[in-house]
Nucleic acid binder design. Structure first.
Lengths: 185, 185
DNA sequence: TTTTAATATATGATTAGACATATATAATAT
DNA sequence: ATATTATATATGTCTAATCATATATTAAAA
């Protein structure tokens, strides 16, 4: 239930409607925690039921009314507790690596195409990470905490470092394929 | 449904029972695709229903009988098709990075403890990756293909490279925390 | 003027995966 | 003798997440 705590995290900065939360996820943590719109609304209902948030309907003239959610003191405690607590060991799944694992069944040409596709995707991913600092600056002004912004930047650093590492690996694989250094039998 | 294709991949090497497949997953692709025992048995049933595998009961004297699954020609085609086909863009979730993103709410001491925990886990993960080449050698003898083994090794390289990159990042974060280089407000 | 886009919330259905548990056989260890 | 471990398969239940779709309002664009 990390989504619950991620949502509490944002609500600890300021109140949000579901629609605003979705947009906020999309331009901050999307690269390591994409959030589904339907799930956000359902989880807001859960947070309210848990007593971790309260809801207020805000009438708007120029737009449809919205439901704004406020974190409660119990919510803040739950968040702090979760942040300080060790996570159960997570495991990551990668369908790409399954394709790599069995790529011996492809021709060298097909394998090369596969790795070049991956490299292209990772380069695009890296490029999109480079856009994030601007968004962080905007949120920093909003939240007014350079400490918070520091840790946001760390998640970006993580993304850049690990993406670069994967890209270097991909490029070395591509090299080996091009140089016919891959066993045929 | 990557699990289905991963299972087809192993079945393309040789027939397996569900129990044997589970063991094989555990010492080959576990680090990027952990497989649940129950799911393996259910997916074997699906593969059979799809016409991608057939089943034969093998009586054993010294052990309980087993159901051995054989890939069909249709299964091989499905596997080759999937391997050559671009995957829909995958997204990775990381609860750890959610904790990092909101770690500004912790004290420096708590944050330091968190990052040192992560570093410990990644070091342990790296150590376990170093054990894999032996297993790969064993399977290489079984499958008798240095080409297959080459691609298995690539997934290991990937794990080592990206884990090292994350570890370097973690160590730089730990440094900054120890040197009081993290903004307080 | 009609359509499209943005804002806003909600529900129904499905799936992949996780977790618990049940059952059974045979070998081994205490 | 008894308990544990390894081998072997199976089912029930739950949850997180996905996908499709529905509804409604207002502004902007065609």
């Amino acid at each position: 239930m990390s989504l619950k705590y991620a949502m509490l995290g944002f609500l600890s900065y300021q109140p949000f409607s579901g629609y605003e939360l979705k947009a906020t996820f999309d331009d901050s943590v999307r690269h390591f925690w994409p959030a589904d719109q339907a799930q956000i609304y359902r989880t807001l209902a859960e947070l309210t039921k848990d007593g971790w948030a309260t809801m207020e309907v805000v009438p708007q003239e120029d737009r449809p009314n919205k439901k704004v959610y406020y974190i409660t003191e119990a919510g803040r405690e739950a968040l702090r507790g979760w942040l300080a607590k060790p996570l159960p060991l997570q495991d990551h799944r990668s369908a790409e690596l399954i394709q790599v694992f069995f790529a011996g069944q492809l021709t060298d040409e097909q394998a090369l195409a596969m790795f070049e596709r991956f490299a292209q995707e990772y380069r695009a991913g890296l490029a999109s990470l480079y856009q994030i600092p601007e968004q962080i600056k905007a949120y920093e002004d909003m939240v007014g905490s350079s400490r918070e912004a520091f840790f946001w930047m760390l998640t970006l650093e993580h993304g850049i470092h690990s993406t670069r590492a994967v890209l270097e690996w991909l490029e070395s694989v591509i090299e080996r394929l091009k140089n016919k250094q891959v066993p045929q039998g």
